[in-house]
Amino acid sequence: MFDDLDYSQPYASARSPVMGSSMVACSQPLAAQAGLDMLRKGGNAVDAAIAAAMVLTVVEPTGCGIGSDAFAIVWDGSKLQGLNASGRAPQAWTPEFFAGQSKMPQRGWPAVTVPGAVSAWVELSERYGKLPFASLAEPAIGYARDGYQVTP
């Protein structure tokens, strides 16, 4: 069935292909493992994605973090649903605050929005998740508390 696949590994951080009925793919193996663990516990793809994203904030904070935004497209069983959790504007951002400015600020505190990643995780978990939200955070908390082997 898979005889025609090329298993050569041109990169130094080669990982062997694994076949199975469920899959979680991300840039860091510990995050992928956290997602798979959620599937094994009876969770769904949303639970797996949230757990993986939480672990990535610990083990790969430059690529994914709680200070980031999040966007999701989810199939709810009957139609596609979208979630835009991009940074919200701070309460002080009124039209008067920007009066006389020709463009959005590029530097300093006025250029910073409120991160949306955590609110996205909560919203997605409440709407579509099967597992308790706290259980999704357990792998990330464990790595933050106990440490982990840094990958290349």
Rank of each mutant, 00 (worst) to 15 (best):
P90R: 09
F71C: 10
D76P: 10
A117L: 04
P95A: 03
G142Y: 15
A92S: 13
D146F: 15
L136G: 01
A137P: 05
A49K: 01
P61E: 01
F71E: 15
R88V: 05
I50A: 01
Q106R: 08
E96I: 07
Q81H: 14
A51M: 02
Q28H: 10
T151E: 11
A140L: 01
G142T: 08
E138S: 12
R107M: 09
G43L: 00
M104G: 08
K130I: 12
Y128S: 04
A25Y: 01
V46T: 04
P152R: 08
A120I: 02
V114F: 14
I50D: 00
A85G: 04
S22C: 14
I73F: 13
P10N: 07
S135W: 14
L83V: 03
A134F: 12
R40E: 09
P10F: 06
I66W: 03
Y128I: 04
K41N: 06
T94C: 09
V118A: 10
D69P: 05
L136N: 01
S119D: 10
G20M: 07
A85C: 02
Y143P: 02
T151C: 06
F133W: 02
Y11I: 15
A72M: 04
A137V: 04
A72F: 04
V24H: 13
R127W: 10
D37L: 01
P29E: 12
K41I: 02
